[in-house]
Design a protein around this nucleic acid. Structure first.
Lengths: 339, 339
DNA sequence: GTTATTGTTGTGTAATATGCAACAATAGAT
DNA sequence: ATCTATTGTTGCATATTACACAACAATAAC
């Protein structure tokens, strides 16, 4: 028999001073309440209250047990409320894992802003490029949220899109002047390419779509095919196996290398936004689109999502949008002036 | 669902690090243990442990809840042991109620001796002559044990015989010299009787049995009727309504009054044992037997009797026998020299 | 005495706790 | 990479038991 319920009945009987009243308060029959108390007495091996048809009186053991019950109930109540609060407000510790370069570039600012908003929440931001072991991260390492650019392809996690991060192909003007400006992706085979290597099997295969029609006016006059969104037409994806001249898993490093004239690099736009704005780097093959990668927030599949995770994901989405991180046409000047 | 069991399952799972092992330890199926934990998580609204087929890991809430569970279990265990101990050894407070005269004369000594033997037990001895309200005493007043000479005639109490207390009819030699020595109970109607009044409807009706055959030899020679136990033969009870000259509910007072020559009194033998030994009082109508009254230990009917009550009743029985309290042929001299 | 109300107990039924078996997921072995 | 063994989960049938109703015993008030 459920011990909690028997204890509850007992406490109620004592408080009400009557089995009948207690039963009606509990929404049970007198019979059951009586059995509950008897059960308790049987298990404890002691009479808890002297019943005499017209009055109930606690025995010595009963008084001690009543006190105990009330303590346990208080304990339970406070504890359960504390745990239930994790659904209401972000409390505890939020453990984040993110790729190093993205983390240092932007996430750290977002996390700091978030931590300011949530003074009751401890935040742990781990930056590394060797993660994504799936369940291991959430289990053994106790991570709450992993931010990454590749799907985990696992049914036991939830992946939520945070932002689309544009990658951009760029080189320094002086390099282009020296090596020539490529006109199609396949031209890149002859260039010195600075390759961003993930730990994932990210080979040095660069993929493009395009080219985009040079003139918008020509489409408007044609009138045969309905204008597609963005007034742009794509061709099938083009994959180019590039010759690596320089490798790094740090996009910033690659950007610096490109600015130094080492070659052409394909990196997240955010990593070279400043150089592009300053003109130390310029876009290469602007008429070809580089597939953007989606920043994913990954957390364990569970019936209830901890409020802290939910809150951070929501915050990050807004923050990313507000700061134009990864926007296809970033207002670079504005972005650099913003906080 | 039984919260204790779900908690138990959860704790076991964490300790074992596996649902399967925990289930076998608990003697349950994996399915049920899984359900238990799920139940718990559902009620708390938080995932308690991240399960990843090969390893289990507590979440933040899980760790907090585990600690809570263990605290509750420790609590329960210690409390239940404390209460179970009341069945093993006499602990707590033993509240006694006894008639005033008997209490002051003998019970107090017994109780003091008992209290010495049971240093962990507090004893409360209330002496009064207005008790026996049955359930009220055990209920409202919280008494554990009532000692009295009259049955409560209630199904909700247990009455245990402690000792048979002889009453004796006696007077001072000088009174008998003055007023004459009664030969039969009915002679008492002409005497000054000192009446012990209880609060109970104990009228001044005195009851006798007898007379006893004066000679034992006469029976041995007769050989017709088999000798009855004690070689004594009784006649039917004789009831005499006596004329009260003096009333008291204190047997000692009546004894003193009798010793002072005020009349004949019928009191518990223990109250006049010293006077009888000293000769300041002598037995009247020795061939008639006065109905002895049985000292009863009365306590509430309950499935389990508290050890303290049981212990005291046993102790009192032995003590009464050892001290010859109420014995029909008391070794008065010996009784007074004993402890 | 009579009555009304209390706590307890017997009994049938509805709720649910439980085990079994099939399933999904994963870590390690081949 | 594929296979295998093992884990935790879920659907389903069933045995358990929690529960209310009603009859009962006891008692306080009338």
């Amino acid at each position: 028999m459920d011990r909690f319920r028997t204890m509850e009945s007992f406490v109620r009987v004592v408080r009400a001073g009557s089995f009948t009243i207690a039963a009606s308060q509990l929404g049970l029959s007198r019979a059951l309440v009586s059995r509950h108390v008897s059960e308790l007495e049987g298990r404890l091996g002691a009479r808890l209250l002297n019943r005499s048809t017209r009055s109930l009186n606690l025995t010595e053991e009963g008084a001690a047990y009543l006190e105990f019950c009330e303590r346990v109930f208080r304990d339970i109540e406070s504890n359960e409320r504390a745990i239930l609060r994790t659904r209401q407000e972000p409390v505890g510790t939020l453990k984040l894992l993110a790729p190093k370069s993205f983390g240092t570039m932007h996430l750290s600012d977002a996390v700091i802003a978030f931590a300011k908003l949530q003074p009751r929440l401890r935040v742990s931001l781990v930056l590394e490029n060797t993660p994504y072991r799936g369940a291991y991260d959430f289990g053994e390492r106790g991570l709450d949220l992993v931010l990454c650019f590749s799907t985990m392809r696992s049914a036991s996690v939830v992946e939520q899109e945070i932002a689309s991060v544009e990658w951009t192909l760029c080189a320094s003007p002086d390099y282009l002047a020296r090596a020539g400006r490529p006109q199609t992706p396949s031209d890149l085979g002859d260039h010195a390419c600075l390759v961003h290597v993930d730990v994932m099997p990210n080979d040095s295969i660069w993929r493009f779509e395009g080219p985009t029609r040079p003139s918008l006016a020509s489409q408007a006059t044609a009138g045969l095919s309905p204008p597609k969104r963005g007034a742009r037409r794509r061709k099938g994806p083009i994959a180019v196996k590039v010759r690596g001249a320089f490798f790094s898993n740090a996009a910033l490093t690659l950007g610096k290398a490109a600015a130094a004239g080492l070659g052409v690099t394909l990196v997240p736009r955010y990593a070279v936004a400043d150089d592009l704005a300053a003109g130390t780097l310029v876009n290469v093959l602007p008429r070809y689109r580089v597939a953007s990668r989606t920043l994913l927030a990954v957390y364990p599949q569970a019936p209830v999502i901890p409020r802290k995770v939910q809150a951070f994901v929501e915050f990050l989405k807004v923050w990313m949008a507000e700061h134009d991180i990864g926007r296809r046409k970033p207002r670079v000047a504005a972005a650099s002036t913003r906080e």
